[in-house]
Every structure is written in C-alpha cells, then in structure tokens.
Amino acid sequence: MTRRKPPPTEDEAALFRDAIGPVRRLPEAATPASRPRPEPRPHMAERDEHEARGEFHAMLGEGRLEAGDSLRYRRDEISPRILRRLARGQYAVQDELDLHSADSAQAEAWLKRFLAEARAGGSACVRIVHGKGRHGDGPPALKNLVDRLLRRRADVLAFHSAPPAQGGTGAVLVLLRPR
C-alpha cells in the first residue's frame, strides 16, 4: 500500500513562492479538441453486399451455361466412377422436381425445400427438371440457377445432366449425402 504525501502546509507554500520569486499567470488555454470518433460502419451489411455482388457477377460471368451444355459436379470424396454411373442413369431416381412453371425466385425456394425433404425422407438420388432454356433470348436462367445452388449445398455429393431418356440436358440427376 502506497502512502500519499500530505498537501503542503501554508508555511511550505509561502517558502516555495519566496524561493521562486514573482510569477506571471499564463492565459487560460482552451482545452484541445479531441479527435472526432469515426462514423460507425455496418460491417455485416457490407459483407453481405459484397457477397451478393460476387454472386451476381458470377452469375453474369463467363461461367454461364448455355442450352445444350451438360451439368456435372462431384465433391472430392466422390470418385469419378460414381459420376460416370450417375451420367449413365445407373442410380434409381427416388423423387423428382419439375421447375418448368417457376420463375427464378420460386425455383430457388422450391429447390431448397425439395432437397431438404428428399434428404429427410432418405432419398439418395433425385431428378430435377429445369428445362433446356431454348425459349428465352439468353442463357437458360433455371439451368444456371440449379447449377449454382447445387454446387453450394453441403448435402449434394454429385450431380450430372440426365441421360437422353430421362430428360438429357433439360434435367439433372443429384446424389444426396445420407442423413
């Protein structure tokens, strides 16, 4: 515990003033202004905006699929042999979703719900019919949406465009991770 010195007595203060001599009082100085605080930044909103812009640019970028392009994807843990078997239609399709009548927002919601329900129901292989996209004047929107969403989902192990007898490049077969 530290001890504080008692304040100087009147005699000590007088001795100090005598030793120093006459003093001149300095003018009162204004207190220095503190630096202004920076404006708060909405970091989460900026991050979300950045991610949304990235997705939008990826959607517009050169990775877009055309009407006749085949979809294919596999996770690293899935062997190329399994993807080849999927491409030949050698897995039994246990459920199907047809997105023909949906716009992009509806298709996204339907696809997410369908995959969650299929996986909860124990389905291992499902077919998603997105159409070939030959009626529009540009890349097929639903086909690109399905490709992008399936690649991002952790419960999707692999997918490939269906064989011609099952819809060809207008449908995709999807292998789901077991529950």
Score class of each variant (00 low, 15 high):
residue 2 T to P: 12
residue 6 P to K: 14
residue 6 P to S: 14
residue 7 P to I: 07
residue 7 P to V: 07
residue 8 P to Q: 06
residue 9 T to L: 08
residue 10 E to V: 10
residue 10 E to H: 08
residue 12 E to G: 05
residue 12 E to A: 11
residue 13 A to D: 09
residue 16 F to G: 08
residue 16 F to I: 14
residue 16 F to E: 12
residue 17 R to N: 13
residue 17 R to T: 13
residue 18 D to C: 11
residue 21 G to R: 08
residue 21 G to L: 09
residue 21 G to P: 06
residue 22 P to N: 04
residue 22 P to E: 06
residue 24 R to N: 09
residue 26 L to R: 15
residue 27 P to E: 10
residue 31 T to S: 11
residue 32 P to R: 15
residue 33 A to Y: 13
residue 34 S to L: 15
residue 39 E to I: 13
residue 41 R to C: 11
residue 42 P to H: 15
residue 42 P to V: 11
residue 42 P to E: 15
residue 44 M to C: 11
residue 46 E to I: 13
residue 47 R to F: 14
residue 47 R to Q: 14
residue 48 D to T: 08
residue 49 E to C: 11
residue 51 E to N: 07
residue 56 F to Y: 14
residue 57 H to T: 14
residue 58 A to D: 12
residue 60 L to E: 07
residue 64 R to Y: 07
residue 64 R to S: 08
residue 66 E to H: 10
residue 68 G to W: 08
residue 69 D to H: 09
residue 71 L to S: 01
residue 73 Y to S: 06
residue 74 R to K: 08
residue 74 R to F: 02
residue 74 R to S: 04
residue 75 R to M: 04
residue 76 D to R: 10
residue 81 R to G: 15
residue 84 R to Y: 10
residue 84 R to A: 15
residue 87 A to Y: 05
residue 89 G to K: 08
residue 89 G to E: 05
residue 90 Q to Y: 09
residue 91 Y to R: 11
residue 95 D to V: 05
residue 98 D to A: 05
residue 98 D to G: 04
residue 100 H to V: 03
residue 101 S to Y: 04
residue 101 S to A: 10
residue 102 A to R: 15
residue 102 A to P: 03
residue 106 Q to H: 12
residue 107 A to E: 00
residue 108 E to P: 03
residue 109 A to E: 09
residue 110 W to L: 13
residue 112 K to F: 05
residue 114 F to C: 01
residue 117 E to Q: 13
residue 118 A to M: 02
residue 122 G to M: 02
residue 126 V to S: 00
residue 127 R to K: 04
residue 127 R to H: 00
residue 130 H to G: 00
residue 133 G to N: 00
residue 134 R to N: 06
residue 135 H to R: 14
residue 136 G to W: 07
residue 137 D to Y: 06
residue 142 L to C: 02
residue 143 K to L: 05
residue 147 D to Y: 12
residue 152 R to C: 04
residue 153 R to H: 03
residue 155 D to N: 10
residue 157 L to V: 02
residue 157 L to P: 01
residue 158 A to D: 01
residue 160 H to K: 05
residue 161 S to R: 05
residue 161 S to H: 04
residue 171 A to R: 05
residue 172 V to H: 01
